[in-house]
C-alpha cells in the first residue's frame, strides 16, 4: 500500500469520524427515470428513429438509402468494418464509384469521408447508438470521418436508458453516441461536427 493512498484515506476517515451516523443508501425504481414515451407497448425502432431525428441524427432502414445519402453528397471514400463489408459490398459494387477500405489508416485520417462500424446496441428513448471495443472495429473510424454509420440490429435496441445501463457490456470502452458531435460554446449557437461526425447515421439491418 502506497503512502500517498494511506495519507489521503486517513484524511477521509478523520473527516468522517465525528459523524454520529452515516446517510443510508436508498433504493429506487428504474421506472422513475423512464420517460412516458418509452413505457408500455412501443415499437423500439419507431421510437428510436424519432428520437434520433430529434437530435439531428439520420435513421435509415436499407443499404439503398445509405448509398443514396452518400451519393447525394458525393462522399465516395470511406472505411467499413471488414465483417460488415461482406454484407454491404454487393450493393456498393452495384452502385459503383465508391472506394472503401477495411483497415483505417490513421496517417490519412482526413481522407475518409465516411466510416461504417457495428453498434453493440441502441437506446430508443434517447436515439442513442452504443459502440464498444468488441463490436466496433476502429474507434477512430467511428469518430474521425464526417459521416459515421452505425449498423444496428432490431434485437439490440433497448427501450430506455436504465435498460441500457443494466445491459452495459463487460468492455473497457463503451460509448453512447446520441446524434452528431456538437457545440454551443460560441454565443450559444449550435454547430455540428466539432471533433467527431457532423452526420450520425443509424442503419437498421435485420
Amino acid at each position: 500500500m502506497s503512502s500517498a493512498r494511506d495519507t489521503l484515506l486517513a484524511r477521509v476517515k478523520a473527516a468522517l469520524a465525528p459523524l454520529p451516523e452515516r446517510a443510508p443508501l436508498p433504493d429506487w425504481e428504474r421506472e422513475l427515470v423512464v420517460m412516458r414515451e418509452a413505457r408500455g407497448a412501443v415499437d423500439a425502432w419507431t421510437l428510436f428513429s424519432a428520437r434520433l431525428a430529434g437530435v439531428n441524427g439520420t435513421p435509415l432502414t436499407s443499404v439503398a438509402e445509405l448509398i443514396a445519402l452518400l451519393t447525394k453528397s458525393d462522399w465516395r471514400r470511406g472505411y467499413c468494418d471488414p465483417a460488415l463489408w461482406a454484407e454491404l459490398r454487393p450493393a456498393f459494387d452495384a452502385a459503383g464509384g465508391f472506394t472503401v477500405e477495411t483497415t483505417f489508416d490513421r496517417a490519412r485520417v482526413d481522407d475518409y469521408q465516411f466510416g461504417i462500424t457495428a453498434a453493440v446496441g441502441a437506446i430508443a428513448e434517447t436515439g442513442t447508438v452504443v459502440l464498444s471495443d468488441a463490436a466496433t472495429s476502429s474507434r477512430l473510424a467511428a469518430l474521425a470521418p464526417w459521416t459515421h454509420i452505425a449498423v444496428l440490429r432490431r434485437a439490440q435496441i433497448h427501450l430506455d436508458l436504465p435498460a441500457a445501463i443494466a445491459a452495459l457490456p463487460k468492455d473497457p470502452n463503451v460509448v453512447w453516441c446520441t446524434g452528431p458531435s456538437k457545440t454551443a460554446d460560441v454565443e450559444g449557437i449550435l454547430i455540428e461536427g466539432v471533433h467527431g461526425p457532423g452526420i450520425q447515421v443509424a442503419l437498421l439491418l435485420g
Binding site: D133, A134, S138, R139, L140, P172, N173, T178, S181
Partner: peptide, 21 residues
Amino acid sequence: QQLTVYTEFISGPRSPAQPDG
C-alpha cells in the same frame, strides 16, 4: 439535453483486438 452526445463508460485500457486507444 435529454442526454449529452457522447457518454463514455471506460473501465480500462483498450481491448487487445481494438487497434485504437
